[in-house]
């Protein structure tokens, strides 16, 4: 993509915080960071990707304008949960303050109140979002998924991706879903809803990863991050997303 003509008029800078890249990275979640970074660069936004890992401080975390956290395997998730305990307060505050973030699968579940494992153990989570996750020990929800975005987001359209999760997430009253499931499972077996939006944070089971085929979500996050940082309304210059549109259509036609 060469978008040198698409530069923003104003010189902006963003720091993307990639949470636990060597641990929470199971389903190509890195693609989300690649997309955010490139879509900033293509608009002339000065962008830095900062890796927040085991041993990083609260201060490191607070230096970020936009966060991304992926999913993980069980062993890795345990390591992360242990380390995040030390940064929990700052992390929760950032979400409450409206620092935009994208949280996938395990990262999404972690924002809720608790995670109930198949054997009934309740593991407390970050507790920022009014939701909880249960793993009933039944079949995993796996496959292509299509979702119509919630109007609350301020953008419209159908997003497509791939889901693969054993946990079922149930939203409380004070939190909105990311969208309505058109095809596939979504956050749980019954509600026909997928993901969650809280302030400027998006949680979802979409991997695949979510952003390459659904660039409107990437731009929503970038826009929110710039608006928060610079305290002004930001209009991102459009990029050529015809390949992403073709990729979405190809999957939708098959579903």
């Amino acid at each position: 993509m060469k978008h040198t003509t698409n530069r923003q008029n104003k010189k902006y800078q963003l720091t993307i915080g990639w949470l636990y890249p060597d641990l929470m990275n199971i389903y190509g979640d890195r693609g989300n960071v690649i997309v955010l970074e490139k879509r900033c660069k293509d608009r002339g936004i000065n962008v830095t990707v900062r890796e927040i890992g085991v041993g990083s401080t609260e201060k490191d975390l607070q230096s970020c304008d936009l966060l991304m956290m992926g999913g993980a395997q069980d062993m890795q998730q345990e390591i992360v949960a242990k380390d995040l305990q030390k940064k929990k307060k700052a992390f929760a505050q950032m979400i409450e303050d409206g620092v935009p973030g994208l949280y996938i699968c395990g990262g999404f579940q972690y924002l809720g109140q608790y995670y109930k494992t198949a054997d009934g153990t309740k593991l407390p989570q970050l507790g920022v979002l009014d939701m909880y996750t249960e793993n009933p020990g039944r079949e995993r929800l796996i496959g292509n998924i299509a979702v119509e975005l919630s109007p609350e987001l301020g953008i419209t359209g159908t997003i497509v991706g791939f889901e693969n999760h054993g946990g079922r997430t149930i939203l409380g009253k004070s939190i909105k879903p990311l969208g309505k499931v058109l095809k596939g499972y979504g956050s749980n077996d019954s509600a026909q809803e997928e993901g969650a939006v809280y302030k400027n944070s998006i949680g979802t089971y979409f991997h695949g990863p979510i952003l390459p085929k659904n660039p409107m979500i990437a731009d929503w996050l970038i826009e929110k991050a710039l608006e928060k940082k610079y305290g002004e309304k930001v209009m991102l210059t459009p990029l050529d997303d015809s390949l992403a549109a073709s990729a979405r259509e190809a999957i939708l036609a098959r579903m």
Binding site: G31, I34, P212, K213, L243, S246, A247, A250
Partner: peptide
Amino acid sequence: DRVYDMALRIQYAGCE
């Protein structure tokens, strides 16, 4: 079958 997904991967790597 997923030609556009692959094309997107290549595009974001910096090549058409």
